[in-house]
Nucleic acid binder design. Structure first.
Lengths: 215, 215
DNA sequence: TAGATTGTTAATCGATTAACAATC
DNA sequence: TAGATTGTTAATCGATTAACAATC
């Protein structure tokens, strides 16, 4: 059922960071690196790097280390960046617009194919050469255009209804910017959350926890 | 040095979710809940909830459970939401604009007091009643207006220079949307990252890992 | 008082680090 | 071959779960 056995969440979460650092090394024309050198740059242990990579395969060479472009490509492949999953964005407000314009979807395995909103003032306008479509036309659009993923940039209370419509269309992968707990809705869906409010509150915790003087 | 001893990162990351669920219970006028009931709603163990909360204090009552508003307020206080840390936003592009407009800073312990950019077309325009200021005036602004936090919404390569200027101004708390690894720059800073690209790649991994048919 | 549920200690599970034999 | 560094096993550390005495 899974390509790489059951890889633990902590390992998966570190992969994009490895990918980023390897990309930077490539920009500097560094072609080879040992786990020890990389661990120093990334401030983690060499052991962890070797353990992490060996979840997926033996990419290194004893006595030599790792090929930077080789490892970069391997991790890109593990992450699945060679795919082009077709995504629709739900919600063309400030956040949705920023996500549409700001993200390099193609570099990350996705292609944005549609944007939906229910605001008559937004419908018909274009973002990144994609026309904003009436949310009422979600079903007909997705039936005509194969869709793998939905991106939720709508307020919390609008989410469950839209999620059910998408689920009924067979679309079960969600990138969720809303604060609705999508993962509780169905069991056979894939959800990746971006909770900006949570992140901001964690920052608040860190600051106030360190700042013993106040309060 | 720390208000609540050394609380582990996993516990801290769960706090905003507890806070959210308790808020929803309050909206439904539910005034009391046991760890068992809450665990069922949140899909985690009652044991974990009790362990998590007891890092900070004994907020429950044997035989009764927890007061929903009581616990809500306690967690809000633990998160430090009673503060109003003064924040400046660096970068008024799509992402910066969305962050400025979309976030309810005041509910999360922050107040947005300034927005900076180096784009002449943006300087002077207003976002949320805050004038976009020339990045060159960062020092004079922060000297005149007490600033606790900086929010980075600029491209990676612009970050280190700006971070150094902020650090020299004594501003050492950062909400980082860029892909520059700020935490490696100084040791006495507080960084909370929002890495949208990483999140998107993790979604890609999850989809492609489940999707054994392809590739 | 009896029932319920906490706070907390003990047991288990998983993730990280250390060590080292294999090997390039 | 000698030196370096991996892949992998074993040891440690930390987080989660289970159990239960304390107590409302």
């Amino acid at each position: 059922m899974h390509k790489y056995g059951n890889i633990s969440a902590p390992v998966i979460k570190r992969l994009p960071r490895y990918y980023r650092f390897l990309g930077e090394l490539m920009d500097k024309d560094i072609t080879r690196i040992s786990s020890r050198e990389l661990s120093a740059k990334m401030r983690l242990t060499a052991s962890q790097i070797r353990q992490d990579l060996n979840c997926f395969g033996g990419f290194g060479q004893q006595g030599y280390g790792y090929s930077v472009p080789g490892l970069y490509n391997e991790i890109g492949h593990i992450l699945g960046l060679n795919h082009l999953y077709r995504a629709v964005l739900i919600g063309a407000g400030n956040l949705g617009k920023a996500v549409a314009v700001h993200m390099s979807f193609e570099k990350r395995g996705f292609k944005l194919i549609g944007i939906f909103d229910n605001d008559k003032n937004k419908i018909g306008t274009s973002i990144r050469n994609i026309q904003v479509t009436d949310l009422d036309d979600l079903e007909s659009f997705c039936q005509q255009n194969h869709t793998d993923v939905a991106i939720f940039c709508v307020p919390k209370n609008a989410v469950p209804d839209i999620a059910k419509r998408l689920y009924n269309l067979g679309i079960k992968n969600y990138w969720n910017f809303s604060h609705y707990d999508l993962s509780l809705l169905y069991n056979d869906i894939i959800v990746e959350n971006v909770h900006l409010n949570d992140s901001l509150m964690i920052l608040c915790y860190k600051i106030s926890d360190a700042d013993v003087a106040s309060d």
